[in-house]
């Protein structure tokens, strides 16, 4: 037994040392999550609007076009449970906060990051936003949550190629490098719609609770909440499941009628947005983001209702 234990430990120790070194090396690499957390702290005394949501929000709302100081806290694949935890954290830290803009997308009620393919991103919220969302050990570590292959690529990009690892502006907004994706939007629409259509309603009740908690939290603090279903390309809208879509829209309407601080805006098929405003079937490009941000700013500058 002694021999077995000694040999096993001797085999594992070099591995553990390598893992620890890698972990420290990777954590040193700048990333959007730590960047946004730092930036928002710098401007916390003046921020009046925060924007929450997934890539739809991250690419869709450009704070530069907001009259008052706004910050975009959206991230790729950020689901409504994470929106709620982020809001809970920052609502106490932003004394001037007046408005929260939250995307209510086709997928919002049917997904949570922990149950999806992007669950590895949970470590970013644990490590860089200090949110303590998951107790799973793997989400407390870069090395344990991401393929070594991807981590090696990150190390190479940052340490050897001096690549800028921050993909967002100082305001938290991100734009695509190209105005359009490689494939035609007409081709991408049905694929994205299929990918976004859920198999079941398992998470709906829990997500509606998260949504309502967000509305209530804003209500308690006297903060206005704008729920918004972003515009999408016709090729995407035409392939959405009507039941899932209706559930999202009716939830937005319900929150609006139930809470004074909440308004709901459904821009899914807004005719003001055309092919030139989309990067792909469900993400606005820089042009679309400008239009959308001006529209939202116009709306939140007026008194609610």
């Amino acid at each position: 037994m002694k021999k077995f234990i000694t040999q096993t430990i001797a085999f594992l120790v070099p591995l553990l040392i390598i893992v620890a070194v890698l972990e420290a090396t990777i954590r040193h690499i700048p990333n959007d999550y730590r960047f946004k957390n730092t930036q928002i702290q710098l401007d916390k005394e003046s921020i009046k609007t925060i924007i929450l949501g997934s890539s739809h929000s991250m690419y869709g709302f450009n704070p530069d076009y907001f009259s008052d100081k706004a910050y975009n806290l959206g991230h790729v694949s950020q689901t409504i449970d994470l929106d709620y935890y982020l809001l809970k954290k920052y609502i106490e830290e932003l004394p001037q906060l007046e408005t929260v803009v939250l995307r209510l997308s086709y997928t919002t009620l049917h997904e949570q990051i922990e149950t999806g393919l992007e669950s590895w991103r949970l470590k970013d919220y644990n490590l860089y936003y200090d949110l303590h969302i998951s107790n799973k050990l793997k989400y407390k570590s870069e090395v344990l949550s991401v393929k070594l292959k991807n981590n090696v690529a990150r190390i190479k990009d940052y340490y050897l190629d001096n690549t800028n690892m921050i993909t967002v502006e100082n305001t938290g907004w991100a734009s695509f490098d190209e105005p359009h994706a490689n494939k035609s939007i007409d081709v991408l629409g049905p694929i994205a719609a299929k990918r976004h259509t859920a198999d079941d309603d398992a998470l709906v009740i829990e997500n509606i609770n998260h949504l309502e908690n967000i509305v209530k939290l804003c209500n308690e603090k006297g903060i206005a909440l704008l729920l918004i279903t972003l515009p999408a390309h016709q090729s995407y809208v035409a392939h959405l499941d009507q039941y899932q879509l209706e559930l999202v829209i009716s939830s937005g309407e319900k929150m609006k009628s139930k809470y004074d601080n909440c308004i709901y805006l459904n821009l899914l098929e807004d005719p003001n947005f055309n092919d030139a405003d989309f990067y792909d079937a469900d993400h606005p490009n820089a042009n679309g983001a400008k239009k959308l941000s001006i529209l939202v700013d116009d709306l939140i500058s007026k008194p609610l209702n």
């Binding site: 085999f11 591995l15 393919l117 590895w120 793997k138 393929k147 070594l148 292959k149 090696v152």
Partner: peptide, 19 residues
């Protein structure tokens, strides 16, 4: 022998994806 086992461990870490 040990180098071979380490190689397998590295491959596991290198290619493993989401659980």
């Amino acid at each position: 022998r040990v180098a071979f086992y380490y190689a397998i461990v590295v491959l596991i870490f290198y290619f493993n994806g989401e659980e």
